[in-house]
């Protein structure tokens, strides 16, 4: 049986050229262009996707390295007809401008709330073992891997705080 990767629940065969990154596999081979290429070097976060529950930069990993993995992209989080709470919150809070970093921000934020729920500390956490709340400072540090050149950060934080409050994080 061919080796496959599951993308948003659908299995896809791993590409032949091992040089193809997970990002280029999504964007080019699968035409899932919601995941963006901003720097191709792990320096901007626009390519953030969720692999087996963890957010990663899809530009710095080869498609071939993900045999059997479960990948969720922005297209897998929600659709225009059925957006996820995070997508809706970005819309309502104007947590974007040009929109190019946005799918990466939303994938990142979605996974991030899970990390907070797990009690994982961040560089902004007062203590390593205390309870973690989705405060502005925590969100800002945890979202610093997603650059937004339009400068929508303040609205991005507002969007995420709203979702966190709804989810009781």
């Amino acid at each position: 049986m061919a080796e496959t990767i599951s993308i948003n629940g659908t299995a896809h065969p791993i590409p032949d050229d091992p040089r193809i990154t997970l990002l280029d596999f999504l964007r080019h081979d699968l035409r899932l262009t919601g995941t963006k290429k901003g720097c191709d070097h792990g320096q901007c976060g626009a390519c953030t996707v969720i692999v087996n529950g963890m957010r990663i930069n899809s530009c710095l990993t080869l498609a071939a390295m993900h045999e059997g993995d479960e990948v969720t992209t922005i297209e897998g989080l929600g659709t225009p007809d059925a957006p996820s709470p995070m997508q809706r919150a970005f819309l309502e809070n104007d947590g974007y401008q040009c929109g190019y970093c946005t799918p990466g921000q939303i994938c990142s934020a979605t996974a991030m709330l899970g990390e907070i729920a797990n009690g994982w500390p961040s560089d902004a956490s007062e203590t390593l073992d205390g309870p973690i709340e989705a405060t502005g400072d925590e969100i800002r540090e945890r979202m610093s891997g997603n650059l937004c050149r339009c400068g929508a950060y303040a609205n991005i934080v507002a969007a995420i705080r709203g979702v966190a409050a709804e989810e009781g994080a």
Partner: peptide
């Protein structure tokens, strides 16, 4: 570790 890189990079 938490002072380095980003969560996305640290996850890999």
């Amino acid at each position: 570790i938490l002072a380095g890189a980003t969560q996305q990079l640290r996850n890999k």
